[in-house]
């Protein structure tokens, strides 16, 4: 299919546009984009899970863990130099999330549908409860974090925000491009097969549980990195990152974007943050209703997500 082959060039074009264009954006817009990119990474992981036929109502677990891991390391283990680095923190967050994903994956890979959703929700709520109990980590108030360097290079004050913005743009590009390649690999192509009919996959000689497990770990790593980025952008973390409504929001965004393309989650995340911010501004008393109606409209009229607009146009062209 020609449309799909254009994904990688389009992604690298988008990378250049965002990198250069971002420089001219006001600070608040850059921050909003970082937030959207960070959350977009989490939703990207969800896209992979959804393609495998699984929806997690507990990605907040890894999102929160990614945010806390990096910061706790600098706080408790005292690696102030390494752990005030804008690149090291999200990556470390991703690694820690991936390790937990590996461990929990042994269990969760056996679950499907609503039970998978609920068990992952339970795990994220347990983390939430543990963090609320930990006064050393600030309990529900959380604590502030900051970064001073990027890949070891000290950042001057005026460059801090753009540096983080550029980093998140780059990480999103790498993640989407790699995931795009992965989805085209043998293992990646097994994901929809698992969703459609597990028995057939097993008869073909592949292990369903292995496919689910691998994809689950990838989603966890993405959520961990995303959490790390958001933590740096906000400058503050607290246990709400693991609360079930946070996870619910990721599923919301995933549905908004659809699973048609690796770019969909990122675009949906951008749109979602923007709608939410506009709703806060223009409907401070009814912003939830605006979000609810948006979600209903998307489900009713664009069941395959916003991406289907692009697909339809590509097909018509």
């Amino acid at each position: 299919m020609t449309a799909a082959d254009r994904t990688l060039p389009a992604l690298s074009l988008a990378l250049q546009v965002f990198l250069i264009g971002g420089w001219f954006l006001p600070d608040w817009a850059q921050s909003l984009l970082i937030l959207a990119f960070g959350k977009g990474l989490v939703v990207l992981g969800l896209l992979l899970l959804i393609r495998t036929g699984l929806v997690s109502f507990g990605q907040g677990l890894y999102y929160c863990l990614g945010a806390y891991a990096a910061v706790s390391a600098s706080k408790i283990l005292a690696f102030p130099d390494l752990m005030s680095d804008a690149l090291a923190m999200p990556l470390f967050g991703g690694v820690v999330a991936g390790v937990l994903g590996l461990v929990l994956g042994f269990l969760l890979a056996r679950y499907r549908a609503i039970f998978f959703a609920m068990l992952s929700l339970a795990f994220s709520m347990i983390l939430y409860g543990l963090l609320i109990k930990m006064s050393v980590l600030g309990s529900s108030d959380g604590f502030n974090i900051d970064y001073r360097t990027l890949a070891g290079i000290k950042l001057p004050d005026g460059m801090k925000l753009y540096a983080l913005y550029a980093l998140s743009t780059l990480l999103v590009f790498i993640a989407t491009a790699c995931l795009h390649r992965y989805l085209r690999s043998h293992l990646g192509r097994l994901a929809p097969a698992v969703r459609d009919n597990e028995l057939r996959v097993e008869y073909m000689g592949s292990s369903v549980r292995y496919v689910v497990h691998v994809n689950y770990i990838i989603a966890a790593v993405l959520a961990g990195v995303g959490g790390g980025l958001v933590a740096l952008s906000i400058g503050h973390i607290d246990p709400d990152l693991a609360y079930w409504t946070t996870s619910g929001e990721f599923v919301f965004v995933a549905v908004l974007g659809g699973t048609g393309n690796v770019a969909a989650p990122v675009l949906a995340s951008l749109l979602f943050e923007w709608i939410k911010s506009a709703a806060y501004q223009y409907a401070p008393y009814t912003w939830q209703m605006v979000l609810g109606i948006t979600l209903l409209l998307v489900i009713m009229f664009l069941p395959a997500g916003l991406w289907s607009i692009f697909q339809r146009r590509a097909r018509e062209a």
Binding site: A113, G248, M289, G292, I293, L295, L296
Partner: peptide, 21 residues
């Protein structure tokens, strides 16, 4: 099933604000 959950999630958001109104 997951889409249905999201439909009711949207409903929840709308009802919460309706109750508030």
């Amino acid at each position: 099933e997951i889409v249905l959950i999201l439909v009711t999630y949207a409903l929840l958001l709308i009802l919460e604000d309706l109750i508030k109104l």
